[in-house]
Amino acid sequence: MTDDPEIPEPIEASEEPTEEELLALLSELRTEHRRIDTQIKALYETGVTDMIKIGRMKKIKLAIKDQIAYLENQLTPDIIA
């Protein structure tokens, strides 16, 4: 694992992963999201103000959050009330 995270590949809508695969990916994305958040906080606490690196990490974190939301929507059935 490198210190410099990369933007994850977008999820292809044409693929049909199983629910178990989606849950595993969701868990992995949540872990990565927390790891990046911890790294950002550590940079702020140590006084390192490399704003370009922090900005890039925040973009990656947001992309991961979007993928988490997408997967959660795929796993949650639509309930018409």
Rank of each mutant, 00 (worst) to 15 (best):
I68V: 13
I7D: 07
R56S: 09
T49A: 13
L25G: 03
E6R: 09
T49Q: 13
H33T: 01
E45A: 13
A69L: 12
L43G: 01
E9A: 14
P10C: 09
M1E: 07
K61L: 05
A81C: 03
E12G: 14
I60G: 02
Q67R: 15
E21C: 07
T38C: 04
E12C: 11
I60N: 02
G55C: 10
R35V: 13
L29E: 00
D66H: 12
E45F: 04
E32A: 12
M1A: 09
E21R: 12
D3P: 01
R35N: 10
M51D: 14
T18C: 05
A42N: 03
I52F: 11
I11G: 00
E20N: 07
D3L: 10
L23H: 14
T46F: 15
Q74D: 04
L71I: 15
L75D: 11
K65L: 10
I80M: 03
T46W: 14
S27I: 08
L71H: 01
E9K: 14
G47F: 10
T2C: 02
I52H: 10
K53E: 11
E32M: 10
N73D: 15
P10I: 02
A81M: 06
K58P: 01
L25P: 00
R30D: 06
E19S: 05
K61G: 02
N73V: 04
I11Y: 00
K65P: 01
E20C: 06
D37F: 01
E6Q: 15
K59C: 06
L62M: 09
M57D: 06
D4M: 11
E45D: 14
R56F: 04
L43W: 03
E9Y: 08
I79R: 10
M1W: 10
R56E: 05
I54S: 06
T38E: 10
D3V: 02
E15C: 10
I79S: 02
K53W: 04
T49W: 08
H33Q: 12
Y44R: 14
T18W: 11
E45Y: 07
L25V: 08
T2H: 04
I11H: 00
D37Q: 14
K58N: 11
T49V: 12
N73L: 11
E9L: 09
I64V: 13
E19A: 06
A24F: 05
L23C: 15
P5Q: 08
L75H: 10
A69K: 12
E9V: 10
L22Y: 03
R30T: 04
Q39S: 12
P10N: 12
R34C: 05
L43P: 00
L22G: 00
